[in-house]
Amino acid sequence: MESVPENAPEHCPGTQSELAGKASACEGCPNQGVCSSLPKLGPDPAIEEIRQKLSKVKHKILVLSGKGGVGKSTLTAHLAHALATDESKQIGVLDVDICGPSMPRIMGAEGETVHQSGSGWSPVYVRDNLAMMSIGFLLGSPDDAVIWRGAKKSGMIKQFLRDVDWEELDYLLVDTPPGTSDEHLALIQFLSGAGIDGAVIVTTPQEVSLTDVRKEINFCRKTSLPIIGIVENMSDFICPKCHKSSVIFPPTTGGALKMAETLGEKFLGSLPLDPRIAKCCDEGKSFIEEVPDSPAVTAFMNIVEKVVSYCNEFVKKTEAETGEAMDFS
């Protein structure tokens, strides 16, 4: 629950908790009387509002990793580009990395601004069928730092989910910051009504990264978030001169494949390190279009296919369970 005030004493149970005003941490808190006497609000009304707002979004996918810099944003952006090659599909990308939004640059939309309309914020369109939203669009300058504590970040995510006017979408991809904290809990909480198809987990091969990613998988299990599968990024490097491969981040413990097997999760594939990918991201281009000959593109399209088939299966399964067809008309 989003109910621990900024200035609360340590171990505050939250103003919406059953224990509000009664826990030992509440002793001496100036708000103790108010907390114990006020009626509890129940679930946040935003959850229902978000469910309605996103009722025309067929698939919602989160991209997660416990570790930073493994390629979450790169994967999200290119998943979006790949899905958007089918012009009949509508794709949305939401960047909830509040302190380090890199999506605008990767998607080539830096400097764009969002407009407010009667039905909410209109997202920025990078293609006819690819819309995106990021806090980067709300900042005045690229030097602006968003120095916010968790509660404020969660509030922003709530607004993103509730107020962005996506209209109809086939896929909404959500790019996240590393970790298992406020942003992630906010997403799980606010999307609990609308539902999430699942999460794609990204890692690099070395154990230092896998350690953090195992924590992320545990987080998904604790919060009952389905895992679509695990992608290993930066697996090997092909020298542009001699075309031989070498390993920069050695998989000392068997890499993501071994981890996926041990944990009983699906392995979606591995992507090689290609300097042209980093360059495309810096320039805001899609490497799928810029360097179609790269082995990374073939590997990537394979992963996209697996994600799409998972999503189709997921909808079928949900329909079978609820006994009603999802109506997106």
Partner: peptide, 15 residues
């Protein structure tokens, strides 16, 4: 356990 996730919001991290 090494794989335990620390699922904490801000105030707990601050403490």
């Amino acid at each position: 356990d090494l794989d335990d996730a620390v699922v904490w919001r801000g105030p707990k991290k601050n403490a």
